[in-house]
Write a protein that binds this DNA or RNA. Structure first.
Length: 279
DNA sequence: ATGGCTGACGCTGTCAGA
């Protein structure tokens, strides 16, 4: 079973590349961030025509998340407010469309787009910190249930210096400050593991390259898109990789997909098998 | 040269992202 995350930087602008990537890679689940489109204008048909189901939540111009799945999508929850009930702050933090979660094949998929924060002295950085502190509360609600969890998306934080091409240049600044790193570590807790690092402990594994300064040509990247899983999924994880080659596409997103392969039975496999037998 | 690119909105510029 393949589960992927990709910040597409506008799903409409990127639709041909997203379609091509789905056809080439055949993921079971693809989580998108920065769709930048209201739900009524989302290009549903491209995905349904390929046999996928969708759960989406977007807004005009900014943010927006989507879960694209070959398997049934159940118990969809939008934002923090569907999980942290009767909480004014959780509702406020759900106005920007940055979280969607659902149950697929008995796995709790949680797709997030963490705020960037702009700079450490910005009001947006306060928003980022508040947002991550609520992510912690939100995750604890799911961790108290039995379902295995796959938390994935654009975290806008490089967890360690080896997740930045030039740590000496960016250390202490936005996306690389100890404040954010510690807060994210606290939010993730000890039940979720950064699964990419199980397979690739080294440097030079980037998921984002700035559009400016020929960052791609110089391979000046960051690893800010992550996949975290709980123990049951971790023990079944077979591989996890970054599909960096599509960053060289014409008009690419500045982020590339991260993909996890796990040994996991599909709920529909049994039905498909018996259907084949009856033919 | 870490914002000196890109996308959305909506109009020839402004805001936001990372």
């Amino acid at each position: 079973m393949l589960i992927a995350t990709w910040n597409v930087n506008s799903v409409r602008s990127r639709i041909d590349q997203v379609k091509e990537w789905l056809v080439d890679n055949q993921p079971d689940i693809l989580c998108l961030q920065e769709t930048k489109v209201e739900d009524k204008d989302f290009p549903f048909e491209v995905f349904t025509n390929l046999g996928y189901q969708l759960s989406i939540k977007g807004q005009k111009s900014y943010n927006g998340v989507a879960i694209i799945s070959r398997h049934s999508i159940d118990d969809v929850q939008i934002g923090f407010e569907d999980v942290i009930l009767n909480n004014e702050e959780a509702s406020h933090l759900s106005e920007q469309k940055r979280v969607i979660s659902a149950l697929i094949n008995d796995i709790r998929i949680i797709n997030v787009y963490v705020p960037n924060g702009s700079s450490l002295d910005s009001e947006k950085f306060n928003y980022k910190k508040k947002w991550i502190s609520y992510l912690k509360i939100f995750l604890d609600k799911y961790l108290s249930r039995k379902d295995p969890i796959c938390l994935l998306g654009d975290f806008n934080i490089a967890p360690e210096d080896k997740d930045i091409h030039s740590p000496e240049k960016f250390k202490g600044k936005i996306m690389a400050s100890s404040i954010e790193r510690e807060l994210l570590k606290y939010a993730i807790g000890d039940k979720l593991e950064d699964v990419f690092r199980i397979f690739e402990p080294g440097k030079d594994n980037w998921t984002w390259w700035n559009y400016r300064h020929s960052a791609w040509e110089k391979n000046n990247g960051w690893r800010i898109d992550h996949i975290y899983v709980t123990e049951e999924l971790l023990s079944r994880a077979r591989s996890c990789w970054i599909d960096k080659k599509i960053r060289s596409n014409h008009k690419p997103s500045d982020h590339v997909p991260v993909i996890l392969n796990i040994d996991w039975p599909s709920l529909e496999d049994e039905n498909e098998f018996s259907f084949d037998e009856n033919e």
